[in-house]
């Protein structure tokens, strides 16, 4: 004991002994779950970054428009057959996409659909069969359509495409900043969760204050980042105006998707009469 102290002048003696520690169990699933959900978002953003321009075969503005029309028609229709036809169409498009993307989209839409099915179960049992089944299938169609849109286009082109719908440039600019900072702050908080996990070697009696420390630090960090960002932008001559150029031309594929949307519109009216 004394030996150790003499040898390493200012080292406390407990540091040169190995710890004889048997950890207590603790419930910290919340850390793992937070890690998982932040991680998912990060990898989602990273993935779409590598999605590549080759993916977006059709004009993005048009794709957004067609998806919106489709979702609107599905929501408006009272015909179950129309919903079925849309679903079959979406399934066939889905089956043409590559596997990794397919699984991602399917996971998303199945999750919400199952949730809806559970929510609708009491209504189904008590005889409200028509609406519960229609709503569940409608939900599947909507989420799948959205998934196909967001998984097949780069997000930067997607946000840019919004310009065509008279969404102000400044809003699109904020959207782009948000996505970027979700990634940066997400990575920061992911590391904070890792640090919390690594240092949670026993029972944490104040889980809430640890979480609050992380959230609070992320907030302060985000504030600092925002300040840095507008200083940097000011230096580059930013005055609060932001202009986006959207130069995309129609290709034959675009006429095809217009045709398909028109086809759905006709079907919608046809089945709407019945």
């Amino acid at each position: 004991m004394g030996n150790a102290e003499n040898k390493f002048d200012d080292m406390p003696e407990w540091l040169s002994k190995s710890e004889n520690y048997i950890p207590l169990s603790d419930k910290d699933t919340f850390v793992n779950k937070s890690i998982l959900s932040v991680f998912k978002v990060l990898s989602r953003i990273k993935k779409q970054d590598s999605a590549g321009g080759a993916r977006s075969q059709i004009n993005v503005s048009l794709h957004v428009f067609c998806t919106f029309v489709l979702i609107l028609l599905v929501s408006l229709t009272r015909s179950f057959i129309f919903v079925l036809i849309v679903n079959v169409w979406l399934l066939s498009v889905l089956s043409m996409t590559d596997t990794i993307r397919l699984v991602k989209i399917l996971k998303m839409s199945m999750g919400v659909t199952l949730f809806t099915a559970v929510v609708m179960l009491p209504a189904f049992i008590s005889g409200n069969t028509y609406s519960s089944i229609t709503i569940t299938t409608k939900v599947f169609a909507t989420i799948t359509a959205m998934g196909l849109l967001s998984h097949s286009t780069e997000w930067s082109t997607l946000t840019r495409a919004l310009k065509r719908f008279y969404i102000p440039d400044i809003f699109i600019f904020i959207l782009d900043i948000t996505i970027k900072y979700i990634y940066m702050l997400g990575e920061f908080s992911l590391n904070m969760f890792y640090a919390l996990k690594l240092r949670s070697v026993g029972k944490n009696r104040s889980k809430y204050s640890s979480m609050a420390g992380i959230a609070g630090t992320v907030f302060l960090q985000s504030k600092e980042m925002a300040e840095d960002m507008y200083h940097a932008m000011e230096c580059r001559g930013f005055t609060g105006e932001y202009h986006i150029n959207d130069k995309s031309k129609f290709k034959w594929r675009d006429y095809r998707s217009i045709g398909i949307t028109a086809g759905f519109f006709i079907l919608f009216i046809y089945f709407g009469r019945m």
Binding site: E19, Y21, I22, P23, L24, S25, D26, D28, K197, L198, R199, S200, V201, G202
Partner: peptide
Amino acid sequence: VKFSKLLHQRIG
């Protein structure tokens, strides 16, 4: 939980 906590204590 116990295994990982012990690992985290032994490796900083």
